[in-house]
Nucleic acid binder design. Structure first.
Lengths: 349, 349
DNA sequence: CATTTTCGTAGGAGCGCTTCCAAGGTGACC
DNA sequence: GGTCACCTTGGAAGCGCTCCTACGAAAATG
């Protein structure tokens, strides 16, 4: 273990003001000062004013540790994210989540603690969450490891998943809060758009088979294809990265050279696929129409710009944050909140 | 203020184990248990073993609040980031930072608290940091607002900037820790590469004039151009986003239609510029060679793939984390750590 | 006018932990 | 064998805060 660490703020100086000092300055007792600060109930207007002045004067802010010790709350929530590897690194999904969450918590005092869920360290992560270090958790269910999901559900810690966790079978849905878009419908919409513009031999570059977003979008594609009486065999998988998109496109066009439309389960993969299509002499959208998914920045900047299905990450994360807040206030868990996907038509299809 | 919140973990159940329980189970006093847990100094081997067993058995982990209250440390550091807006959202910079920081802290107990520095709320941010809620801070100096930078420096809170803060004039450098790449040299290298391949009329799409990365890369370009005896007037500015890159490219080619090379200060802007070049009938790299900056994922997937200057975000953030750790252990601040940029040659130049 | 209710306030206990201190036990050394 | 040093240990204080309880004064009630 490390030696004694040096104090964050030097103790030699007057130091951080305490409630005691505020009370003294305001000429009231510690209790009154505390009450004044925590909502001002049962405090006379004069006392309230005096305390507020003292607080402003001293630049006081309550010691969270002390408060937390007695309230048994921490006023902080965990943002549980999978270890940011190459994939997450190039994925704007996370930044969007953060943005939405921040906006949900904007006018609370709640802090966000980043919890990196390292693969193989679930034990540690769960212990951290269990032992009251945070009041709740937002879990970015963007990883392939559902033992963590399961463990979190067992925990009874107020928590909301962004994106349906794979462990969310219908039976346990009620015990489990999540926010997601309807990826099945999204997949259907994307495919239908291709069908509507006349494509008949439509392939798909699907996401990983162990992530709900990957699975569901593929299901949506299947549904649309069978409903239209088309074959649903032209499937290759990627892992949502640019590189995998390029590879997948190559495989797809090799195995099914006659495709005239591709539904690609993420814009990033589409960004990888488009250059390959060009290289193989396919004009987009004339020879092969392409629809992506996510609509997160990259979509508009590909060549040609990508028709894509909107996944409103920011709104989802915001909703997740608000739901968590509700739970922290004691509200009972509500059923999953599913956003409707929307299609943005650009040049690629 | 909000009403009483519900406890994160239900108190009716056996609840979270305390040190007292561990001690009882191990058959030692609370003090001994504490000593055993915090490094095991002055504890007999038997006692140590007994405590360790009890800890494992009970799944104990110390209450951070209680510990923090007495040690006056929080064992957490702030990651101060500018409010994630559109720009940050589509920027993999942040994810990389997180990745690097996480790796630096991997085998410590230190938690990362996300502090969103909202514009116009500097007061609040500073107060939070000042009042001992965290032991130190990593500041992603990726924003345009240097009053925060200045305030943080005043704070005497151990902190490390990722990216040179604009307020870091040579005089205050010593009081201020940061990690950065040599953006001037990076700009020079990029430009030199264009010169070397025969470009003579080189323009630049520079970053914002109020961010050190923007300023320095432009300086580098200027240096290379004047050293080569070329005119350094073909400058337009963007704000590091894709959209601004597209606009800037249009402006540049309108004002200076004879450019045969462009140094673009970020890959994202380059990603916006390339389609515009294509649209205006310029072949890359034949008619106009292009060098980008950052080499963060997008670079490899543009059409054509982008020659770019590596900015090792992950390594930088990791270094920043390690330096902060050093400071927390009492080490004296060290001079800025500057990474050398590297050029990755791809098809665009 | 006496009595109850209400209100604002102060004091004190105690949250779980670290750490100071004194005490006890052991071995080394004279 | 006695003294000293050293190591291990438990008791107790106290970190800054909230909240329970008690209390006096003011307001409302009979």
């Amino acid at each position: 273990m490390a030696d004694r660490l040096v104090r964050g703020v030097d103790a030699a100086r007057p130091g951080v003001p305490t409630l005691e000092q505020v009370a003294a300055k305001a000429g009231v007792s510690r209790s009154t000062a505390s009450r004044a600060i925590n909502g001002g109930l049962r405090v006379s207007p004069e006392a309230l004013l005096a305390v507020e002045a003292a607080v402003a004067d001293l630049g006081y802010s309550p010691n969270r540790a002390a408060r937390s010790l007695v309230t048994r709350r921490t006023d902080s929530i965990a943002l549980v994210v999978p270890e940011p590897d190459e994939r997450v690194l190039s994925d704007p999904f996370f930044a969007g989540t953060l943005n939405g969450l921040a906006s949900a918590l904007a006018d609370t005092e709640i802090q966000v603690v980043l919890v990196i869920a390292r693969p193989g360290q679930n034990e540690r992560t769960v212990r951290y969450l269990r032992n009251g270090h945070v009041d709740g958790a937002i879990v970015v269910s963007h990883h392939r490891d559902d033992t963590l999901d399961r463990a979190l559900v067992e925990l009874r810690l107020p928590s909301v998943f962004v994106g349906r966790p794979l462990s969310a079978t219908p039976e346990v849905d009620s015990r489990l809060q999540y926010v997601d878009t309807d990826n099945v419908q999204g997949g259907r919409m994307a495919t239908q758009h291709l069908l509507d513009r006349g494509c008949r031999r439509i392939g798909t570059i699907a996401g990983p088979e162990d992530m709900s977003a990957g699975i569901d979008r593929l299901i949506g594609w299947r549904q649309a294809m069978t409903a239209a009486g088309q074959r649903d065999d032209a499937v290759v998988h990627g892992d949502f990265t640019i590189v995998s998109g390029a590879e997948a496109a190559r495989r797809l066009l090799t195995e099914y050279p006659d495709v005239d439309g591709i539904f690609i389960a993420s814009d990033l993969m589409a960004a990888g696929a488009l250059p390959v299509l060009a290289e193989l002499g396919r004009e987009v959208p004339q020879d092969v129409a392409v629809v992506g998914y996510d609509n997160l920045g990259v979509a508009a900047s590909t060549q040609p710009p990508l028709t894509s299905v909107i996944q409103p990450v920011v709104a989802m994360a915001r909703a997740a944050g608000l739901r968590l807040l509700d739970q922290l206030q004691g509200a009972t868990p509500t059923p999953p909140l599913i956003f409707a996907p929307e299609l943005v038509v650009r040049a690629s299809a």
